[in-house]
């Protein structure tokens, strides 16, 4: 599997985990993002032509925006940690690693989208 393919799967897995975690406590916002991404990628995989690359770039753009939002929050908290103790305590190694994944995957998927997966039509 290509690097882009691995990054695509990693971001989907991360959002699947977030979607389930939040759905269990009553928030469907992450599930909505995941569903939008999954439908876009699914339609892109089934369609002919350049739709797959466009679908991956849409997902990559969403990941890049999420990464920028996460990084922006970290930078804001570095200047004033008292804004929110909850947000400050969220700044763990896992949080920063996930931010890096979003940024790297976002840029990668936009610049070098992986090849369309092979789909066997029945």
């Amino acid at each position: 599997m290509s690097g882009g393919g691995i990054l695509l799967l990693l971001t989907l897995a991360l959002w699947a985990w977030r979607a389930v975690d939040y759905a269990l406590i009553g928030s469907l916002a992450p599930l909505g993002i995941l569903a939008f991404g999954a439908v876009t990628l699914g339609l892109g995989a089934l369609a002919k032509g350049r739709w797959w690359r466009s679908a991956v770039r849409i997902w990559g753009t969403m990941m890049l925006l999420a990464g920028l939002a996460r990084a922006g929050l970290s930078i804001a908290l570095a200047f004033d940690p008292s804004v929110s103790i909850h947000a400050s305590e969220a700044q763990t190694a896992f949080y920063h690693a996930a931010t890096a994944l979003h940024l790297v995957a976002g840029i990668w998927l936009i610049v070098r989208p992986p090849e369309r997966p092979a789909i066997t039509r029945i």
Partner: peptide
């Protein structure tokens, strides 16, 4: 308690409260 954030958009980038 473990609940979503005070705004749904924060659920996209933050852990639950």
């Amino acid at each position: 308690y473990r609940v979503p954030n005070i705004h749904w958009a924060l659920d996209l980038i933050m852990p639950p409260q």
